[in-house]
């Protein structure tokens, strides 16, 4: 039995944001503060920890193995879980050894393998190599994927927390696609009229849609059945705010971080939530959000990474 209550990583505050709403020209805006979830600096990824720790307890795994990028919330949080559950952790990063994710992973005691610029194939080969090496040493490694159908129920259940707000639109940053896929399941069950605006932070819209479809299919939604079109039709994907790429702040995301800080005293960061808010601001300015729409901006966390961006904001 873990001494930290991982199921406590839910029921985050829903905060009215009238000043930010006014700045964006939106009638009603609330912030779902998953950044305040109580583990390893918070973030929506914390919601999957209860299920992960439960699954871990049923395996002999003694080493968690995962890959990620320079500002990966998954890397920070899983490294922390490994530390808290007394397991080893190894992280393969497609970023340098001095990246923020590498720093946090090492802080939690993980071993970092830095492969700057590595593509998905190189990361896979490195993960496989470490799997074999660890197994040869008699260890029991377990690969933790960035996105898994097993994670979807926790994001599905998160939607139940905002049913009373009766939102018309939820805005969320989308990387692995798992949060968006889970939210779509929750919307299908709880908020039939609400749309999901997924703001891609690293891949073209069509690819993100396919990834979300794959995750839904893996969760048991038939890819060629009638449920999939109904669930997917409420999804809008925005990919114009990726900027120079995953993990790279943009001028628009820096402006969005400043806007949230100066209007509501809320910290965002410029590579996930900052890009999502930049997208919302742009779409609202284009008239893409009805004046009377009730909007929820889902703060997915990542605030610990803001510190490394403050110097850029200053300039």
């Amino acid at each position: 039995m873990s001494h930290f209550d991982f199921p406590a990583c839910r029921d985050s505050p829903l905060q009215d944001a009238p000043h930010l709403a006014a700045a964006l020209g939106i009638g009603s805006l609330a912030l779902k503060r998953d950044d305040l979830l109580p583990f390893a600096g918070g973030g929506t990824k914390c919601r999957k920890l209860a299920g992960l720790v439960e699954r871990l307890a049923q395996t002999p795994a003694d080493t968690l193995l995962l890959s990620g990028g320079a500002t990966s919330n998954q890397v920070r949080i899983i490294a922390a879980v490994a530390s808290q559950t007394m397991r080893a952790c190894e992280v393969v990063l497609n970023a340098g050894p001095d990246s923020a994710a590498a720093d946090f992973a090492r802080l939690f005691g993980a071993v970092v393998h830095a492969l700057p610029g590595a593509d998905a194939w190189a990361l896979n080969a490195a993960i496989r190599s470490r799997l074999k090496a660890l197994s040869a040493e008699g260890r029991a490694p377990l690969v933790v994927p960035a996105a898994s159908a097993a994670d979807l129920p926790c994001y599905d259940e998160a939607i139940a927390e905002i049913v009373r707000a009766d939102a018309d639109v939820i805005v969320v940053a989308a990387g692995s696609g798992a949060t968006s896929a889970g939210f779509l399941l929750g919307l299908d069950r709880h908020l039939a009229h609400c749309r999901l605006l997924a703001v891609s932070v690293d891949r073209p819209a069509a690819e993100l849609r396919t990834v979300i479809t794959r995750l839904l299919a893996s969760s048991g939604i038939a890819a060629d059945g009638t449920d999939m079109p109904r669930i997917m039709q409420r999804l809008d994907v925005e990919d114009r705010f990726i900027g120079a790429g995953y993990g790279v702040p943009s001028a628009a995301s820096h402006r969005a971080v400043e806007l949230a800080a100066r209007s509501e005293g809320v910290l965002l960061e410029p590579v996930y939530t900052g890009k999502a808010l930049a997208a919302l601001a742009s779409i609202a300015a284009e008239g893409g959000i009805a004046r009377n729409a009730r909007v929820i901006f889902w703060h997915t966390g990542g605030v610990p990474y803001l510190a490394s961006s403050l110097a850029q904001l200053r300039s």
Binding site: A120, P145, S148, V211, R214
Partner: peptide
């Protein structure tokens, strides 16, 4: 690339 399989 088409998302049929993921990295894992």
């Amino acid at each position: 690339g088409s998302g049929i399989i993921d990295s894992i």
